[in-house]
Write a protein that binds this DNA or RNA. Sequence first.
DNA 1: CCAATTTAGATGCATTTGCATCTACCGTCG
DNA 2: CGACGGTAGATGCAAATGCATCTAAATTGG
Lengths: 153, 153
Amino acid sequence: MAAGGPESPVRLAAETWESLFRAQVAVMRKLQSGPAFRKLAVNEYDVLFTLSRCPSGWLRLNELNDNVLLSQSSLSRLVERLEKRGLVARMPAPEDGRGILIQLTDEGRELQKEIGREHVRDISALVGPALTPAEQKELRRLTDKLRDSLGKR
Amino acid sequence: MAAGGPESPVRLAAETWESLFRAQVAVMRKLQSGPAFRKLAVNEYDVLFTLSRCPSGWLRLNELNDNVLLSQSSLSRLVERLEKRGLVARMPAPEDGRGILIQLTDEGRELQKEIGREHVRDISALVGPALTPAEQKELRRLTDKLRDSLGKR
DNA sequence: CCAATTTAGATGCATTTGCATCTACCGTCG
DNA sequence: CGACGGTAGATGCAAATGCATCTAAATTGG
């Protein structure tokens, strides 16, 4: 193992992750404290957002769970809360008696759009001045590649 | 280059952040579920790690709070737990009667190293196969630049 | 076809988290 | 100096989270 010389692959990977993670923390901290998340926690918004992006409009609970950093039980209760607030609707999955399908209600879609607009402005104000468009594209490419690589295993 | 027309700057920034965030979620999910975090939650490890990287060995509570995605009160109690477990020690800040200095105990340093070794291996196994060394360096550069840009305001 | 295993989601319960607030201390300005 | 606004942490309390477990339904293997 190299000491002092060129950086070891293990160390490089660790530092890469460290940078990615700290950047995420720094951005998220700013976003969270903004006014966009007065009405909804970030995780709750994230669920609405994921549902809004889904082509069919319906998602299984376990599919949702792949996108969000929450345990299965926490997501279950989070969706329960959203349902109580009238932002999502559930129905039993037709093909699988164990499963639950979730979809945005009109009110949920409305709130997602409202928060989303503000959220996107906040993001733009943070990321826009930090990186050139070319750098943003490259960052997007690299993080997409990283995520794709994890999924394939 | 881009397939469908030009992308608006706002949209590009939003998609960049989205990719970064999802990649972080995907990696973190894998890391959390590994055996490295049986003994300590990720946030708790993060505090030990941050303390281990600190040159003086001592850090103020509010300095710690900049690195971790936790509210002030949650961090205060997290440190309280770590102290109860004998992993960190506190002392009043000499120059500021309001402040608290925190440092690793020997046991805390030991545990940080132990978890850290495993953690770094896990990271390497996830990031190493996903991106070339040059890509990792570029990703590190971009995320560092992003974080630096946020700090300066 | 039925028993055994696996998977999806819900639930009891203890822990963790955040908001609001409180106390103690710092720095400033009269 | 002494009041006053601001900052560093701690704390009460309600809400959110995760672990372990449970139920029900699907899948597998005989």
